[in-house]
Nucleic acid binder design. Sequence first.
DNA 1: AGTATGACATAGC
DNA 2: AGCTATGCCATAC
Length: 105
Amino acid sequence: MASELYRSIYAVTAKIPYGRVTTYGQIARLVGNPRLSRIVGCAMHAAPEGLPCHRVLNRRGELCGAFEPLGKDTHRLLLEMEGVTFLPDGRVDMERFLWYGPEDK
DNA sequence: AGTATGACATAGC
DNA sequence: AGCTATGCCATAC
């Protein structure tokens, strides 16, 4: 960490409103490089506690499946607790809860 | 210090 | 419409 890019990523991630989700690509875009999606993932891997990384999903609307010890069940529960509804596919309703950026706030 | 791989996404075929 | 190939930056070996 200690990188400015990381700071930006964490900043954006921390700005995700309650009950809203976003994608790696979206964060990457907000940071300035739509192709940094992988870096965002790396940043999440090293994400400090307090960072709502559970609100960060992949393009499918699913958590990358790498949500450690908690597991996807806890993940789903966490989002549902915030008011995010899940589709029968097990994916988040992106059309309704996808965060389009600070301006959407 | 260089190579390989990655919590992804987009474009091309 | 689904799969392959490429891009980006950082971390790990």
